[in-house]
Design a protein around this nucleic acid. Sequence first.
DNA 1: GTCTATACATCGATAGAC
DNA 2: GTCTATCGATGTATAGAC
Lengths: 197, 197
Amino acid sequence: MPSEPVADRTDPRAARHARSRSKILEEAWVLARRHGLGRLSLGELARSVGLRQPSLYTYFDSKADLYDAMFAQGNEQLWAEVASRSYSEHPGEAVKEFTRAVVAFCAADPTRFQLLFQRPIPGFEPSPESYSVALRFLERGRDLAAGAGITRQRDMDIFTALVAGIADQQVANDPGGDRWLRLVDEVIEMFLDRLNA
Amino acid sequence: MPSEPVADRTDPRAARHARSRSKILEEAWVLARRHGLGRLSLGELARSVGLRQPSLYTYFDSKADLYDAMFAQGNEQLWAEVASRSYSEHPGEAVKEFTRAVVAFCAADPTRFQLLFQRPIPGFEPSPESYSVALRFLERGRDLAAGAGITRQRDMDIFTALVAGIADQQVANDPGGDRWLRLVDEVIEMFLDRLNA
DNA sequence: GTCTATACATCGATAGAC
DNA sequence: GTCTATCGATGTATAGAC
């Protein structure tokens, strides 16, 4: 994150700065959910956290930098979600658990889902630092899939399409519910059966 | 469409009006692709078609009305795409053909895909008139699916997730290519085999 | 149907005082 | 680190002349 000041990790001033930044980021998500990611405005954001609009530039170099921080934060939350849980020793079960976790995560916040997996803001490209967090998640998924026999690129592409499709329908047509989430097991079983046939 | 003037269908003035409206709509898509749907601006749109910004209100009551017209037009294109072609007498083949057509349609224009199938603009709800075009498409898909044994709601939900997932991945990760499009047959076969097992 | 003029709000970003 | 002040641009929408 380019706007991070150079300071020791235990510097109380740096800690205070980080806390403020975190609070601003949190409010940015609230506003993005309300108005749409592309309509997020720095003026309203500043107002919401009790600052004047120019003061935000202490925390973010630009609006693009703010988007980048949101992208990184969302991916860290996703990583925390899939990395914190333990997975079954049965590889197929582990893939199902992983998929359920991802779909639930996506359904929990459609706006976050949009920023992480779709391209709602033309011109926005995550910085390499932010993207590296996303890669960690993708590698975890790839490893779990490989354990269940999903190794060929072609099969990985099908797997990602299955996960994306369930998440997409859940978010778009039943946000907050579980109409598609509960289909995860059946879909993944269908796919793994096909692979082992 | 609320802003349509009352006039006989053969009225040359109405025809001229419709032609202008169509041209504006076309340019609106160009700008939406460039800047994002949420960033579409009436001023730039007017400039692009050689009008002053207030003149657009002759053709659209509001920006929401413009979005609604775009939604309707996109759905009419989709309908033209799936209704114009003939489908195999083999029900399973017909479903594959339909799915390929839908995925190709989505991949051809990510922005159109976004407006039709995702919710990129908080607060935008299509008018009943516009949505009726979308329903025609959904019913066609439902009928074709039913012919291949996809009748239970649960199975229809899986089917829509499969189509959405392939389209989603194709649009997001290989726009203009066919990396996921070419997986349609395998995925649909897998699903139909499962149903008939 | 198109225009000028304008209202009124908001936008992202920078300069410089404190 | 936060502020005031401000730039220059852009946003949607309306009034009223032609």
